[in-house]
């Protein structure tokens, strides 16, 4: 503990460095008057996806409706400084700092944001007149068990998460029509994720559209999985697959069908969203288009 006696007059500044992890959950709970069980997932960059997956699991077990999602910001001196010291962000101060799957990528761009969902039993949603946007059909989680600061290079644990999600959804790999990649734009993440995709999808990966929205909105850390699921919802409802901002020269080590900077119009039935957290916590979630 700090030697408080050596700083007898010290008080913390009004600027709050404290970071209660359930701030957002508490605010949502109070704003909506929710009184049910509360779960606060802090599994780093996989937290948002895992929160949605857990909500789907709860509904599958009998819960009527769950409010879920993610909110995060590391856009502050401590967050930016700390990430910089780990060497994760791009060192370039440029709008195209984050270039997922590009051969010249050199790191992520720290972002901030939030995305929330109502996950609800389909019959319940329809009974109250809600228009379902998508169905959560599959989810899977694994852990790299590799290193705290680097993904497993062969993507094997990430592949297992994807495979588990496919199994839960009852889908063959060929059924997936779009992958929203974790795609951080760091030198290590992107090729490892492409290895995972190649492992699961085999030859299908050559014609499987993949993109990362992190080049456009940055890495939202704990909220990334949630907002990227929102991107998948929009891909289904708008029949428009988001592009990969700032991609100019695809890295040959990322041998998948990466969508370039412009969105691609396509009608797909099933989407896959990957969230691979710092420290190796992997989550994959599959959505299905609503008829």
């Amino acid at each position: 503990m700090i030697d408080w006696a050596a700083e007898p007059a010290a008080t913390l500044p009004a600027m709050r460095f404290r970071s209660p992890v359930d701030t957002a959950a508490r605010a949502v709970r109070r704003a909506l008057g929710l009184r049910g069980p509360t779960t606060i997932n802090v599994s780093a960059c996989a937290a948002g996806a895992l929160a949605v997956a857990e909500a789907a699991s709860l509904v599958a077990r009998g819960a009527r409706a769950v409010v879920c999602g993610g909110a995060d910001s590391m856009v502050n001196p401590l967050g930016i400084g700390g990430m910089a010291r780990l060497g994760a962000p791009s060192p370039r101060a440029a709008p195209d700092a984050c270039r997922p799957f590009d051969r010249d990528r050199d790191g992520l761009a720290i972002g901030e944001g939030a995305a929330m969902f109502i996950v609800e039993d389909l019959a319940s949603a329809r009974a109250r007149g809600a228009r379902p946007l998508a169905a959560i059909t599959g989810w899977g989680a694994t852990q790299d068990a590799y290193r705290a600061t680097a993904p497993r290079p062969d993507g094997s644990a990430a592949a297992a998460a994807i495979a588990r999600a496919l199994t839960r959804a009852g889908l063959a790999p060929e059924a997936i029509g779009y992958v929203n990649a974790h795609g951080t734009g760091t030198p290590l993440n992107d090729p490892a994720e492409c290895c995972a995709l190649a492992t699961v999808f085999g030859a299908h990966v050559a014609k499987l559209p993949v993109s990362s929205i992190k080049g456009a909105i940055g890495h939202l850390m704990a909220a990334a999985g949630a907002i990227e699921l929102a991107a998948c919802v929009l891909a289904l409802t708008e029949s428009l697959l988001p592009g990969t901002a700032h991609l100019r020269h695809r890295d040959p080590a990322c041998d998948v069908d990466v969508i370039g900077p412009s969105p691609r119009r396509a009608y797909v039935e099933h989407t896959l969203s990957n969230s691979f957290g710092f420290g190796g916590q992997n989550a994959s979630v599959i959505l299905r288009r609503m008829p």
């Binding site: 802090v42 895992l50 989680a141 790299d144 957290g277």
Partner: peptide, 21 residues
Amino acid sequence: NNVHALLAADLGARGDGATYG
């Protein structure tokens, strides 16, 4: 999730998992 990540690597825990706060 730092303790979680280190433990997963030490124990070879590669299955389902999450960190709660």
